[in-house]
Each structure stands twice: as structure tokens, then as C-alpha cells.
Amino acid sequence: MISSLLYVPGNAARFLEKAGQRGADAIIIDLEDAVPENAKTEARDGLAKWVPEIKQSGCKVFVRVNHTDRLIDDAVAATIAGADGLYVPKVSSPDVLARLVESLEPHEKDRSPIAFVPLIEDMTGLFEVRAIAKAPRVLALAAGGEDLATAMDARPTPEVLRYPKLMIHYAAKEAGVLSMGLLRTVADFADKDALRAAALEAREFGFDGASCIHPSVVPILNESFAPTAEEVAWAQKVIAANAEEAAAGRGAFMLDGKFVDAPIVTRAQNLLRRTEKGRATP
């Protein structure tokens, strides 16, 4: 279960040294947009120190690599440092990921293969997203809201981003990989009420978690994406009632005045499975 991912600039030592204490399920060390061109090599070299140091806190560590000619070198450095996965920007086809696999395999002989989180950030990627989702090593899909809006020559409002983000979400669910994100941009982190509402909405749609760029948002994501105690109690009640009804030869039944059949039982099972892997809120 990954409910919260916190971006940290790869050249900001004062943020990196505290990253593992922020309560996020995963840290994304950013080598791309958050790092100026003249600091990118230094940030990449720093992965050898920061990836294992942050992982000691118990959270996962991803690295957002550059999509330019730095892609392979960044990915190799992240792999050697022991990162759990790569956030790969501007993925427009599965070919990019296949090329990454080919380049990384020689560096993975004594370690588990590194996972990929393709970022869908342009129109080509959006219309190829189903194929991208089914590519090797894909752990999750995510959208780059600001980049998507720019690619459309649009403003990154929730209305603009809603449909493309849902397309990406549906592709992730079809492929059986995690779907990360909110149905809005994460760049505006000052309005906490709006962020909380967006996180709760995303969970209603079945998103698994979301990233953020400020540590103050982490608790909001953790709370919003976690099942509540009431939901857990409901799921346990459904599972127990289903066992009794199944023993009596009934596949559908009424519980507290509501109809329950197989899809609802499956939803309850999934919720309890999610609780076992993560946290439940009071």
C-alpha cells in the first residue's frame, strides 16, 4: 500500500536528510524538474548516499529520472543505489520502458529488478497509455498534470485534467497496476481543504494514492486514502454474513436493510486486504 509519495529535490541536502521522517510511504528523489541543469550530475551522484539513507527509515524510495539523454545514466545510478523504482517522465510508448530494461539488466544481477512508474505527460502518451500500462515492470501509472495541460495549451484546472487523468486511471485498473494521483494538479498545495476533498474524491474513484510536493500534505494523503474504522467494521460484517449465508446455500442476502451480492463481498475483501497492507484511520 502506497498512499503518499513526497517529492524531494535531488540537490537539496537539507530536505533529503529529513525526507524519511515526513511520514510518507515513499519518497521520490527528483532529478528532473526540481533540479537546475547545472546541478543534475551532482544530484545523480548523490543517489548513492541518499537512497540507502532514506530507505533506513522504512519508506520506499523512487527516483524521478530525466527524460533527455540523461535517462539511462540516471536510471543506472538509481538502480545501483538500491532505489525501489523509477518515475519515468514523458513516457509516450512502451518502447521507452523496453529500452530501460535492456540497459538496466546488466546492473541487476545481484538485485531485484527495479520497478517503473511511467508518467503520462503528453497527448501521445495519453493515447498509448493502455499499452504503456501493460509494459514490463510497470508498478503504477501517474499523470503529470502540469505537463498534460501544457501539451493541450490549456490551464491545469480540475475540469481540464479530469478526463485525461481518468483515462490513465482506467488503463492502470485494466492492467492491474497501481493508479496514483488526484483529479487535479498537485502544484497548489496551500489549499488544504481542497486537497483533502480531492484526495477523498480520488479514493472514491479507486485511486490507490497520490504524490505531493510539500510535507504538510503527507498526513492528508495518508488519512484520505486509508480505510476508516467504520469501513473496516462494515467489511468485516459483510464477510462474516457472507460466510453464514453461503453455508446456507445463499449467494445474495440482505444486511442491515441493504442488498449484498458477490461484487459487494469482493469490495469488502479488497478493503480488508488494503487494511492489512497499510493503515486504517480512526
Rank of each mutant, 00 (worst) to 15 (best):
L148P: 03
A262R: 14
V117F: 02
G176P: 01
D45V: 05
E32A: 10
G176Y: 02
E230F: 09
V91F: 04
L178S: 08
V76P: 06
P263V: 12
R279A: 09
F15P: 00
A229Q: 15
F207S: 01
I54K: 05
I2C: 03
W234A: 07
F189I: 10
L119Q: 11
G209V: 10
L195K: 07
D25E: 09
K90A: 08
A131I: 06
M167P: 01
T228Q: 04
P156F: 05
A194P: 00
Y170E: 15
F62Y: 14
H169D: 01
L86C: 06
K60G: 12
D33H: 12
G20I: 10
G85Y: 08
M254F: 09
A246N: 09
Q56P: 05
A115E: 09
G125I: 02
Q56N: 14
A171W: 03
K134G: 12
L166P: 00
A252Y: 07
C212K: 11
D33Q: 11
A154M: 08
M123N: 03
E244H: 07
M167K: 15
Q269T: 11
G10I: 12
R162S: 11
A241V: 05
T150G: 08
A187E: 08
G82I: 11
D74W: 02
V65W: 01
G85I: 05
A187Q: 12
D33R: 06
G257M: 12
A26E: 13
L148K: 06
P9F: 04
A154R: 04
T41H: 08
Q269L: 14
R155F: 10
E42Q: 15
T68D: 15
L161C: 07
R130L: 03
V35F: 04
D188A: 10
L16P: 00
E159K: 03
D193G: 11
A142T: 15
G145V: 07
A43Y: 05
E204R: 14
A246I: 13
G251Y: 00
A149Y: 01
P52W: 05
R130H: 07
D84H: 15
K60Y: 06
G20M: 10
S57W: 00
R155L: 15
V61R: 01
M152V: 00
H214G: 02
M1N: 09
K109D: 06
G257R: 05
K173C: 03
H214S: 10
E17D: 14
V88F: 01
E17L: 03
I264Q: 12
Q56G: 12
A12K: 13
E223Q: 11
D73A: 15
V218F: 02
A241H: 06
I132A: 04
T41Q: 10
L195Y: 03
I168K: 00
E37H: 14
P215S: 13
G145S: 15
Y87K: 08
V186T: 15
K258R: 11
A83C: 08
I114N: 00
L31Y: 03
Y7I: 14
E17C: 14
F253R: 01
M254R: 13
E231A: 01
A149E: 06
M167D: 03
R130Y: 07
V63H: 04
L47K: 01
P215N: 15
S3F: 08
T157H: 04
F207L: 11
V101P: 00
M180C: 02
M180W: 14
K109L: 14
A202W: 00
I72K: 15
G10A: 04
G58D: 14
I264M: 13
V88P: 05
E276M: 14
G23Q: 07
A248E: 13
I29C: 09
D153L: 03
